[in-house]
């Protein structure tokens, strides 16, 4: 225990020293911003916004070093390393990162829902005049309120009724409504795109000739495999028949084919997963430590 603490202290000191040199030499994590001043001609009111500029432009006039955003890059780097530390083992740093993540991301989803759906759609359509005067000045001036929006309001109130001491069962009504709506929608869309169209795409001639009448072996084998393979896999999913006898053999072939499918899926996915790590490494090396020039 003591030894490992020792090792960690030494490693931390080395890492700290290294980071200090990166900061001094390469301005690791530094972010530069340029101002943009917007003025309203009528009221004379002006507002300044700042946006990030590439490091190459850091000496241009008006460009400033941004402490807040530089701090942000360091915070990002800290969280990136904190999550990676979980791979070594559960630890305090990870627990802190996890706690912040759960809290911040729950709030994030709620804020997005509030501004985009609640204010943007609900209030924007129910009270266009109010919305126009406050947070959505771009709304057309002569829009009249959309009273249909009272329906989701009513359903929202019914849903929250469960917080009341009695009659909480009424919250099941809007729930039933929406589960049914999407059941209906998904029924049709899945039937169309995943059932009908998939069958249609598998309608193929088993024996293929070229236009000049010559036999095309490759295409014939391909089509036959496609048709009979699909049938074999479908057999695996039959619930009425026990997997014995002929049905057993066919469904066995079906499960083999499914395993090949899964093998392909696995390999194709592997590629994406490694690219995610590449993305993070790229952040650590370039945006944070400023290796090999900056973005």
């Amino acid at each position: 225990m003591k030894q490992s603490t020792m090792v960690w202290i030494i490693l931390t000191v080395i890492a700290g020293a290294y980071l200090t040199t990166r900061v001094v030499q390469y301005h690791a994590g530094a972010v530069y911003v340029a101002p943009k001043v917007m003025t309203d001609e009528e009221s004379g009111r002006s507002v300044t916004t700042w946006s990030q500029v590439p490091d190459l432009e850091k000496d241009s006039p008006g460009v400033e070093f941004s402490f807040v955003r530089t701090l942000g890059i360091w915070v990002s780097a800290f969280f990136t390393l904190a999550v990676f530390s979980f791979l070594v083992g559960d630890n305090v740093i990870y627990k802190i990162a996890e706690s912040i993540f759960v809290g911040a991301s729950a709030a994030y989803a709620m804020v997005v829902g509030f501004w985009a759906a609640f204010m943007g759609i609900f209030v924007g359509r129910l009270a266009p005049q109010f919305s126009r005067n406050t947070f959505m000045p771009s709304l057309e001036p002569d829009v009249s309120p959309n009273w249909l929006m009272l329906l989701p309001l009513a359903m929202g109130i019914m849903f929250l009724w469960r917080l009341m001491p009695a009659g909480g069962w009424i919250s099941r009504w809007p729930l039933a409504f929406f589960i049914a709506v999407f059941a209906g929608l998904r029924l049709v869309s899945h039937f169309e795109a995943d059932f009908v169209v998939q069958i249609r795409s598998t309608l193929l001639p088993l024996i293929v000739f070229a236009a000049d009448g010559s036999f095309n072996l490759k295409a014939s084998l391909w089509n036959s495999t496609m048709v009979f393979g699909t049938l074999a896999c479908l057999t695996y999913f039959f619930f009425s028949v026990e997997h014995t006898g002929v049905a057993g053999h066919i469904s066995r072939v079906g499960i083999y084919l499914l395993m090949i499918t899964f093998g392909v899926g696995f390999a194709l996915t592997v590629m994406s997963r490694y690219s995610l790590l590449i993305g993070r490494m790229n952040f650590l090396l370039k945006e944070w430590l400023h290796f090999g020039g900056t973005v």
Binding site: S201, V264, L268, T269, M271, S272, S275
Partner: peptide, 25 residues
């Protein structure tokens, strides 16, 4: 699209989609 998504999307080619790039390669 990502390599992950790709395997479920191949059946849409070429009738419902012209083509796709699946992953980095």
């Amino acid at each position: 699209t990502t390599g992950v998504q790709a395997s479920t999307l191949y059946p849409y080619i070429p009738n419902q989609m012209i083509g796709m790039l699946a992953g980095i390669k």
